[in-house]
Amino acid sequence: MRRTSLAVTLGAIVALTATSCGDTTEPASEGDETSAEQESLVLYSGRNEELIQPLIDTFSEETGIEVEVRYGDTAELAAQLLEEGDGSPADVFLAQDAGALGAVAEEGLFDELDAELLDQVPEAYRDAEDQWVGLSGRVRTLIYNTDTVDEADLPASVDELTGSEYTGRVGVAPTNASFQSFVTAHREIEGEEATQTFLDDLAANDPQIREGNGEIVTDVADGVIDMGLVNHYYLYGRAKELGEDPAELNVANHLFSDGDVGSLVNVAGVGVLNSENPAAASLTEFMLSNEGQTYFAEETAEYPMIEGVEGPEGMPSLEELDAPDIDLNQLDDLETSVEMIVESGLVG
């Protein structure tokens, strides 16, 4: 094993020296050799390897920067980062969810991001104190089975899902971070009391509790449940795995209208833990570049964060979306939301 890793390291060094000739992305402190050594970084990624690795490979090819990626579950990586504190080997944290970035930022582990870079992203989708930035957006939707449900019967507002016509039909993933962000947004827009009432009524309406969005989508497609609250891109993931056109599937995304909080836009994003490594800034920059943003739109069917890149096919653009008017920075009080979700009985 040690021999293999040695071989890998040697190979990487050879490759690095080969590609980094004439590469002048960052000023080297002392001579070319140290610069070659420094051109590597450690990334903790809470997003799936299948999704992220191709993008990282392109980045490495273009810049000659070697990226060691540690894949894990977003929440568990956040816990690991908090445990590691200042001793963390990580340079960059890529998270599935803004809440996890907020938790790491709260412990003061992130370094401030470059203001110029951040200016490309609307204020609503980045941290007010420049600790992290959104890389891609996802809309909360109500996915439904087109064989068993007529779209005309679906509600205009998420609050209507507590009605008797939806009893036992709605899939919910209350332990999932994106549902929690939705609850926080609900509190911001409708107030604490209305939110608790909504959660209590939802819990009393025989909801179909699932661990994650993916399971809801599978069960909706299998006809086990009629509909469920998920993120919009799961539909595209399923189409890809089945090798079918998203429009041909027996499931479809229903968007709530009139700025209903049910259609909240969440982001997946990134924060830098070690800004002394110049490669960290290069990676963030790359992910917010045209190329990186196009990748997210095309491969994961998410919304780009910068102007001038087309959104995912088959979805309305962010402007047309009629998403609720909310700043993600207001969503940092996750703790109260969690308490309210537990209180409602949605989580056993």
């Binding site: 929440a75 816990a79 445990e83 056993g348």
Partner: peptide, 15 residues
């Protein structure tokens, strides 16, 4: 519930 604590509000100490 221990595992859920980590994802629910990223509550490491609760877990």
């Amino acid at each position: 519930a221990v595992f859920t604590s980590f994802s629910m509000g990223f509550d490491r100490l609760g877990g």
